[in-house]
Design a protein around this nucleic acid. Structure first.
Length: 568
RNA sequence: CGGGGUGUAGCGCAGUUGGUAGCGCACGUGGUUUGGGACCAUGGGGCCGGGAGUUCAAAUCUUCUCACCCCGACCA
């Protein structure tokens, strides 16, 4: 590629709005251009990287018997009614009408389409397992996109769907997929990747893993145990909650006046927040009059993902309004209101001297001991925190890190095959719903994470496996006839040898060429200059280390070839 | 959806008692330079996000609206 004709430009100024390294550099180096909030065009360099990532994914999917397909971006409402998700998913799904007034939607995931594609054509367990995948555009109308390609509304995704006759078969395949994912991330050159246990959310299913790129720009929190090494999304992490007090005292109601918040109560009684029982209120989504009161020890926070699992329903934040609850004085004893769901966190179970609301304005109760005063069930919905003891090994401490989710794998179960009526004959001759797994990788996000990880002060620094080009051919004093002739010849020779070259055929100063070659991040650079040509030499250098040496011009093609081979 | 912020040339920005727009980079032309983002001269490029209003006169004041950014809520 001749840089003089390359679409896009490289600029010194970064967008004032950009915050992440990948956003700034991809913008400055002419890889991406924003079209709208969370919607980007990929310029040639970015598209080349994207295609390389896609090809690596494709190869790894094919290795585990994946069959590449293509499902539609636009789907009719009816297909999503079958699974029940048409009404379940909020406005992150774009809905619209076609010319006849028919309800249509933009696909944000393709379980329905996948089941639709193969249902009725696969009739027997003997045709399973089967995996189909596609690499295709998804649109999710995220409320808040950010950080360049890290979080966008439109993106390219690899999504795969597997079908199995037995759970055991799914589990075996799931492990193969996990390995394939690790291969993919290794091959694209990402290092800071871990797989963590995750919440299954609206996808349904039980077992799920997320692949996290550990980085401070991430929006997910991951708990990693210092002892047993268990890694999970904070949404599902369980820490050990130690009981603080073991002395019992008589239950009493006391006047507390205007003291409402945990902080105010703690100040008034000179106690720690762990000696209080707080009430956190939500409403059931879709049935907002149904108030959920979640009691939890005052020093802990509610993990809403866990709470949703416990309730089996989606929740939203709510104002108490006319529910009959006394804001600031809600407590477990004498709690009365219409249409109430009450849950108790495990942290309260063994505490003996808690202060809680008395359900009466300006009053609290003290010395509450659940084991003595209440007969209720406890469930875990507290949020894991930094330095908390891990509940798995009961020994190590959690360290909480930030991560960007760049892929996930789910054991889905029969949610979609059952709701959409897909059956096959089992070995025993029964009609069964195949068990599904689904597996996603965000291509653009992966690209952004590689950029985030592989860069320095000067610019991007792509791994060979995904670099848009392998060599930056950089003639200096290009107007010099000798330089020009030899460079042109070298460009031709390199291309002939099947090497991907970005050829800086511009008559501009050396400084700009150096700066841009580093900004664009091509792994190798070859400099042709009058100085070198006096001795028939060119300069060869590595982007990553800056290491450089002179090479005889007759040997350069072979050298570049060998270098690429070595690093792929 | 809440809170905050920004919209002026392709990009980054300046522009207050209101007087019809400027700087740097980039781009065109001529010349001098030439191994780390050179310099001189010269030129092109703007419905000052959009509508409505106040005024003799609006980038500037008022008002409505739209877009984008940041923080939160939300999110396979």
């Amino acid at each position: 590629m001749r840089i003089s004709h390359l679409a896009g430009e490289r600029v010194k100024d970064s967008p004032s709005l950009a915050t992440s390294k990948s956003h700034i550099l991809l913008h400055r180096a002419g890889y991406i251009k924003q079209v709208s909030n969370g919607i980007y065009s990929l310029l040639p360099p970015a598209q080349r990287v994207s295609l390389k990532i896609q090809n690596i994914i494709r190869e790894e999917m094919n290795k585990i018997e994946g069959q590449e397909v293509l499902m539609p971006v636009v789907m009719p409402r009816e297909l999503w009614e079958e699974s029940g998700r048409y009404s379940l998913i909020g406005n992150e799904m774009v809905r619209f009408k076609d010319r006849t007034g028919h309800d249509m939607l933009l696909g944000m995931t393709h379980e329905e389409a996948a089941v639709h594609m193969i249902k009725n054509t696969i009739k027997s367990y003997s045709q399973l397992p089967l995996m189909i995948y596609q690499i295709q555009t998804k649109f999710r109308d995220e409320a808040r996109s950010r950080a360049g390609l890290i979080r966008v509304r439109e993106f390219t995704m690899k999504d795969a769907y597997s079908f199995h006759a037995t759970q055991q078969d799914l589990e075996v395949y799931y492990q193969r997929m996990l390995k394939a994912y690790i291969n993919i991330y290794t091959r694209v050159g990402l290092k800071n990747i871990i797989s963590v246990a995750s919440d299954t959310g609206m996808m349904g299913g039980k077992v799920a893993h997320e692949f996290m790129f550990l980085n401070e720009i991430g929006e997910d929190s991951i708990a990693i145990c210092s002892h047993c090494g268990q890694m999970s999304n904070v949404e599902v992490a369980t820490g050990l909650v130690e009981t603080k007090t073991n002395i019992q005292k008589p239950l009493k109601q006391v006047y507390t006046g205007k003291a409402k918040t945990i902080e105010e109560i703690c100040t008034m009684f000179k106690i720690d927040a762990s000696q209080t029982c707080k009430a956190v209120c939500y409403a059931i989504k879709g049935d907002e009059s149904n108030i959920v009161v979640a009691f939890i020890r005052g020093d802990l926070e509610v993990n809403e993902a866990k709470l949703k699992c416990v309730l089996g329903k989606d929740i939203v934040q709510t104002k108490l309004g006319d529910s009959g609850l006394v804001a600031g004085n809600i407590g477990p004893i004498n709690l009365k209101a219409n249409n109430l769901t009450v849950v108790y966190d495990a942290s309260l179970k063994d505490e003996k001297c808690l202060i809680a609301g008395a359900n009466k304005d300006e009053y609290h109760i003290i010395n509450l001991s659940f084991s003595r005063d209440m007969n209720v069930k406890f469930v875990d919905f507290s949020k894991a925190y930094h330095n908390q003891t891990c509940a798995n090994c009961r020994c190590g401490k959690f360290s909480i890190s930030r991560g960007v989710e760049i892929g996930n794998i789910f054991q889905l179960g029969t949610k979609y095959t059952a709701s959409m009526g897909m059956t096959v004959h089992s070995a025993e001759g029964e009609e069964i719903n195949p068990i599904m797994g689904c597996y996603g990788i965000g291509v653009g996000r992966t690209l952004a994470c590689i950029a985030e990880e592989s860069c320095d002060k000067k610019g991007l620094c792509w791994p060979f496996s995904v670099a848009p080009w392998h060599v930056y051919l950089c003639p200096l004093k290009y107007e010099n006839k000798n330089v020009k002739t030899i460079s042109e010849k070298l460009y031709e020779d390199l291309e002939q040898a099947g090497i991907e070259v970005l050829y800086d055929d511009r008559e501009i100063s050396a400084g700009i060429k150096f700066a841009e070659s580093e900004l664009v991040g091509i792994p190798l650079r070859v400099i042709v200059s009058p100085r070198g040509l006096e001795n028939n030499m060119v300069e060869f250098s590595y982007r990553k280390t800056g290491e450089k040496f002179e090479i005889n011009i007759d040997q350069i093609v072979e050298r570049v070839k060998a270098e690429i081979k070595k690093n792929m």
